[in-house]
Amino acid sequence: MAEYGVANPANLSALDTSLSVPAGGTWTSGNGVDLLDATANLLGELEVQISVTGGATDGYDIEVIAQYSEDNTNWPDDGDPDAIVYSKADSAGGASITRSPTVPIGTPTARYARLQYKNNNATDAVTVTSKYTIRKGKDST
């Protein structure tokens, strides 16, 4: 399988694994991450890497945003971004993997974070895998 983009570092943890995002531009929510390091009372800053496969016929067109919330059951409205994470159109498509750089999401505004994915291809699904790491933290008090 051809791979494009950047290398796949080993120090990232799985966030969303092999998530098939529907065609047609509907936002799909990923898993959440609890950014609080309770021991140190610090909120971590998230960095993520997105890998995309699919768009079999004519490449893919995907947008990824991050959202924050203090309540992991009550997130912002679909597509309402706290940060733009990744946007890629007309990439290789097919069975190849395109892997983004590790993207810093920035200073968190709440305890929980999640990614949302939108596949703008009209017919083809794309499969995304995202990985994350926590780079540093700030005092949450």
Binding site: D16, T17, S18, L19, S20, V21, P22, A23, G24, T26, T28, S29, Y117, A122, T123, A125
Partner: peptide, 20 residues
Amino acid sequence: IPGPTRMFELIGRDRGISVA
């Protein structure tokens, strides 16, 4: 034109689904 996803036909909404 693109029709609905099978997911939409089944549960009435589009939703991503993971391998797991």
